[in-house]
Design a binder for these strands. Structure first.
Lengths: 221, 221, 221, 221
DNA sequence: TATGAATGAGCCTTCATTCAT
DNA sequence: CATGAATGAAGGCTCATTCAT
């Protein structure tokens, strides 16, 4: 037992499928897109390397030319999706005029929930760290940081209450995250969106600071 | 356990292969408790059936006498932990006198975040659906429903704003959930707790309904 | 992709072969013996784990219960064969009376060459280090040391010339080793044995020290 | 090379993907030399086709233009090295004058042992049959035949004892072979060389035939 | 002729699950 | 009931060899 590939380089079958030679970047893209389709359909736990190469119309071994390991693929998928989401978000608000932060907030909530619902099995690829074993967890934050960026800008602009954005933003992100779960569990989308808006908008209401819940009024905490 | 061999070997039985005959329910409890220890330590992906029977000091085959399948164990672990958490919660407030809902809210937030942080690898057993493949997702809701129960009672008591509790509660649950993640990611616990309180209390503030964010004030949406 | 064995514990086929339950040591022996047969037939490079389990009449996975790795099997095979060879050698000469070292030498040469010829593909398992990656090379010496032991005893007994046994013995071992190769390559066994005897006996001839080759006579080196 | 990526990257070509057209024989030589470097460094089991083409600064597919199969390369490497060793040996003694066979013997012993020690991972390429699966084992003999040639000439010249050179020579070769192993295993080179000389010179001593070991004296075998 | 992307047979190893004792 | 040896389907990953460009 030595470990050298196939024992006899046999080649004899008919013509299973013509060999498609692509540029590395094209092939990588095809694999990545195939992976996104498969992961959306099956989720990361049920997806296999071979599912992806089959979907991509290439040989199993080719996978490893582009993704040294399964975790690398997951990372690539995640980064790819988050990057494009983030790019689109930035694109939406980079005009010259001032931003109507509250309108934007409402629109983005809706968009993000819908985005997640469409994610299907990709959900946990993007939002749970199933890939990086020991790798910088930082990366995982980038979904959250997209939201954080938005809030921080709104706060800086004076539109939102001056909350501790670095911590509050991720938590509001979790609300959006949970909203997608809830919708997928069958609850009416608009009802969920209304609840999300309630939470987010009350939290960010600049006037909110003044009103004080009974508890704090009492103890002066 | 990542590789081979025992990790801690918390074996308790007397002689190595003394056939310990236990009542079925006692044996099941031992396995369940062993599973909880192992899962907390290793998380569900790295835990093996054999890790659990070893920890429980019983034979591998015995596992299947009590849990037809690995997924069933996960379900049992989850239900067991959530049930006892919920029971304790109910216990805390079933006295005769009236409840200080805001004090309770604050206390419960803290408790729940700490509870999750201590969960370790059990976290995703309780809050992600790693067991039921095709089974009713409803089950997963029971963690959320613990919180929902509490809120609904507070609302009924008039202490909290009359929000759509069935939907809002799960979302606030997600805030707590995310808070635990954030703490585990290294952010200062008290800072996180403050942010959680901010979100939860503003959302539930009975006076909050009156204040209206600029957006709604403007558009009357 | 999680890495948990089979995805669905299917069990349905007819009755491929009754499950034979053995004691661990019996099963280990069966595997070891099967391995010896297979390795003799195919040599280590062409042998596969599955060849061995098939030969042993057990399931592939069972191999790993007894040999954590392929290298461990090789080590076990080697040690097993050398140990029994060595034991037999010792047995042969442990009587009370004095040993006829020259007769013994001739007999052992013949035995050892025959032993090796019968080894077939096992040859390089025993005499080349195809197993231990980083493990103590010491083990590999044990084939040589069997011979060294014998020579050292004969020298101590005054029957052989007082050569540097620790170094000379392994080299004489290599002669025996090569003799087997030569026989296997088709050269007449007795002719090879005669040549081996020539080399070994001239080297160990106590009278040999006196005769001095022309070279040394000339230079007094 | 054990893992991924280039090990040393001794690439020599000018621009990264400059199509270097070489005469077939020049290209073949480059590959062969690259192979020798790689094999010396890594040994045959850890060397890959791609390591060799990388070292040679050419494309992977090019390998198969010159060596139909991995085994063919190994054969070519072996023959190349042995041929040049043999050529150098012949060169050394083809002058007009008479040869001092005993001085030559001693020198060649030293040279050959050193040669082998420097072989590194090439060792088993030259001296074990890792290439020819079913092919004539005869080929493997050519290392041995180099030595045989030398001895036969010395015997013909009357300098060495009239032994059965065709069989004795390979066995003495095995002594040299083993000597290299021993040196590499850490034993002092000069001590090993002394032992080798002892064996070889006693075997070839023309006067040796007269002295007869006790055994033969006794039994007249 | 050169290139390097593509192919796919292998083969190891893991581990949920089964079942003889 | 308990035990733990046995089973075998999976699936990751490697790499000699092929072939479109």
């Amino acid at each position: 037992m030595t470990g050298r590939g196939p024992v006899l380089g046999t080649r004899r079958s008919g013509s299973p499928s013509a060999r498609r030679r692509l540029s590395p970047s094209a092939r990588r893209s095809e694999l990545l897109e195939a992976a996104i389709r498969v992961l959306r359909r099956l989720g990361p736990d049920a997806s296999r390397v071979e599912d992806i190469t089959r979907e991509a119309g290439t040989a199993k071994g080719n996978f490893y030319r582009y993704f040294p390991t399964w975790g690398d693929l997951l990372l690539a998928v995640r980064d790819s999706l988050l990057d494009s989401y983030q790019a689109a978000l930035i694109e939406r608000y980079r005009g010259p005029g001032p931003i109507d932060w509250w309108a934007a907030l409402e629109a983005e909530i809706e968009r993000f929930v819908d985005f997640q619902v469409e994610l299907g099995g990709l959900h946990e690829v993007l939002f749970h760290d199933r890939a990086s074993s020991g790798r910088p967890v930082e990366a995982n934050r980038s979904a959250r940081s997209t939201v954080a960026l938005f809030l921080a800008a709104g706060i800086a602009d004076g539109a939102f209450a001056p909350v501790d954005a670095d911590v509050v933003a991720p938590l509001l992100f979790d609300v959006l995250h949970g909203a997608a779960d809830t919708v997928q569990a069958g609850v009416d989308r608009d009802r969920v969106l209304a609840a999300v808006r309630l939470i987010v908008e009350r939290t960010l209401d600049p006037a909110g600071a003044e009103s004080m819940p009974p508890h704090e009024a009492r103890s002066g905490d």
